[in-house]
């Protein structure tokens, strides 16, 4: 089969390209030597150094806190936005609203970062709030661009949902608010989880926007990584990368397991009539 061979080659090369750098990082995180090119034996000393780095650890902690807040805020706003987009037909400024959901997906970070900074400065001058830039301004900025991603993830699930499920709940006597809690929310829950996780990683990953809107004393993980990487290759970063890959892989495995379980449940065959 010619086609199969071709497809196998294309996919192997493609995935090798995607994964080779990550595999190398993991390998070299256990390298005794500081140099990437030389293998000087197995060692976990860079992990020790990573955990001993107070600046790095406090940056990790701050990034985690901001990411939690940003992703939670983003799915709340994103759910509302998804409802507005999917359920309410056309309303005044519908096109503008749709653009404000879609544009952040492609907007270069430098523009978003600069514009938000200028907004915070102007707000500070006009209202005295936010009085200084720091983790709060980063949080607000992250909520804003994560909302767009969350709204897209949630709205695609909402579009698939059978409207008659909500009608059925209402028909059986549930008030609209209860319909939302008992029927809509459980059904769109997977997309809320997906939206939350996506927002979380986007927030954890953002360097540019955070650099613009942060203030003294609020240094996030990507900012620390960037400044240390600029100075050259650092095995500590390899160790950090390995840990990130590990955490992500575990999370994916858990998600995989749940998905498989749901699939197996679904495959329980109904009895013949």
């Amino acid at each position: 089969m010619k086609l199969n061979k071709l497809s196998l080659t294309v996919l192997t090369l493609g995935f090798a390209f995607l994964y080779l750098p990550i595999v190398l990082l993991i390998g070299y995180s256990f390298n005794e030597s500081r140099l990437v090119t030389v293998w000087a034996g197995f060692s976990t000393k860079w992990y020790g150094e990573l955990f001993a780095d107070d600046q790095m650890m406090s940056a990790v902690w701050l990034s985690l806190k901001i990411a939690m807040g940003a992703s939670t805020g983003a799915i709340i706003l994103g759910t509302l936005a998804a409802f507005a987009l999917v359920r309410f037909g056309r309303f005044w400024g519908h096109t503008l609203f749709g653009s404000m959901i879609n544009a952040p997906l492609v907007m270069p970070d430098v523009i978003t970062g600069l514009s938000l900074l200028l907004l915070f400065v102007a707000m500070g001058q006009l209202f005295g709030w936010p009085s200084e830039r720091g983790s709060l301004t980063i949080l607000l900025a992250h909520i804003t661009f994560c909302t767009a991603y969350a709204a897209i993830v949630i709205s695609s699930r909402l579009k698939e949902m059978d409207l008659s499920l909500e009608e059925a709940a209402m028909d059986l006597g549930a008030h609209p608010f209860k319909v939302f809690w008992l029927v809509t929310l459980p059904i769109i829950a997977p997309s809320l989880v997906a939206g939350w996780l996506l927002s979380f990683t986007l927030s954890m990953d953002d360097l540019v926007i955070a650099s613009f809107v942060s203030g003294p004393g609020s240094t996030t993980l990507p900012m620390v990584v960037f400044s240390s990487v600029r100075l050259g290759v650092s095995p500590k970063i390899n160790a950090l990368a390995t840990l990130i890959v590990l955490v992500v892989s575990i999370a994916v495995c858990i998600a995989w397991w749940f998905a498989r379980k749901a699939e197996r449940d679904a495959q329980m065959l109904p009895d013949e009539e």
Binding site: D162, S164, L165, E167, A168, A169, M170, D171, L172, G173, A174, H175, P176, V183, I187
Partner: peptide
């Protein structure tokens, strides 16, 4: 609908999954 003593069987059945 939630105050009517009327119930409906939907075409898609609309069973809560």
């Amino acid at each position: 609908p939630y105050e009517r003593p009327i119930n409906m069987m939907f075409q898609s059945y609309a069973l809560f999954p």
